[in-house]
Design a protein around this nucleic acid. Structure first.
Lengths: 189, 189
DNA sequence: CTTCTAACGCATCGATCGTTGCATCAAGGA
DNA sequence: TCCTTGATGCAACGATCGATGCGTTAGAAG
């Protein structure tokens, strides 16, 4: 539901030290982002929060931007199950509501903002890459099921992810799950 | 067309020293953002680029986040003329194309990303506040002109600004003006 | 059990950041 | 013209950042 991958670091091996360090750093970065101002986030701070030497972070990630892009990529991969209600409309409504719910978490928003600011284009696409894949999976399944007038992924992303993420980033408050469901009729007619 | 307000700093008075410093700092911040990585942007760097002492910037803006929010606010205020084609549909199409054109400028994107990253919610709303006012103006004019089925501002923002800004921030490449025009029928039917 | 390699911790260094107290200067008003 | 006030320049200062060389350790391979 929330996309956290902390307790299942499938990176290399769950028990490895590298994986532990990586998970600790990711967690510390997210906690610091949720707590303080984003422009006060530095690598030594994250390292201290993770109980790791700053040198380790510098060597593994290099810059804060790369680290945040990595955090965003992990945070926004998996965690949201692609629904299967039997109809494309139902799938999209449930999925949009799930995305909206995820976008209500202040920690999620903080990571997104930081990744966008520090990692540029890479940070932005890291936040939505998995969402696009999920969307494509639902549309493809609908096509295979013989549904008619299935939009392509770009149209669907414009109509659903566009308003969702626009409100999350630029709006005062993100949209509600109910409102997100209402976006689907605008796409499917 | 591009929203720059550099040559007309209507802040207090065009000739004042404060206004000159403010304009120089704004210009330096935008130039550095367009040139280098965003996480390397610091107040002393901006001050040096503006030919101003860092102390001045610290005292006037305090943090990098507040400065970037101010830059974004200036950059995205005015500069885009609200069209008056006679019909709401034509107004919205021309306006959306103008927004799309503005969003194709890498400097514009750099400012937006930096403001979002460093200034949080304030930075985000600073980027779109003026767009919402322009939208409201067009919709209100259409209502007064007796047009029927005029959507409210939230619906219009979701359908137009949503996809436009979503592609600009999260997409690999921003949308074209022609594509932006195509968003209007999805709103008006 | 031994060995090997990659990752981590540690100490140190220079550079830069952000702050503060004080002097100076530009603009507007009497 | 002179004066008042707010903004800016200047020069310190401590704190922190980011990089580097080297020793040590964890984990996997044999």
């Amino acid at each position: 539901m929330d996309g956290m991958t902390l307790e299942a670091p499938t990176q290399t091996r769950p028990g490895g030290r590298s994986a532990r360090v990586r998970a600790a750093v990711h967690r510390a970065a997210q906690e610091l982002l949720a707590g303080g101002p984003a422009d006060a986030l530095t690598i030594p701070l994250i390292a201290a929060g993770a109980g790791v030497h700053p040198t380790t972070v510098y060597r593994r990630w290099g810059t804060l931007g790369e680290l945040l892009a990595d955090v965003a990529s992990s945070r926004f991969s998996g965690g949201l199950v692609v629904p299967d209600t039997g109809s494309l409309r139902g799938d999209l409504e449930q999925w949009a509501a799930g995305v909206a719910t995820d976008l209500r978490d202040p920690k999620t928003l903080a990571i997104m903002r930081a990744a966008i600011g520090a990692a540029g284009v890479e940070g932005g696409s890291a936040c939505v890459a998995d969402r696009h894949e999920q969307l494509e999976a639902m549309l493809e399944r609908a096509r295979c099921a013989g549904e008619t007038d299935v939009p392509d992924r770009e149209q669907a992303a414009d109509a659903l992810l566009g308003p969702l993420y626009y409100r999350a980033i630029f709006g005062e408050q993100p949209g509600s799950p109910a409102w997100a469901r209402g976006l689907v009729p605008r796409l499917l007619g």
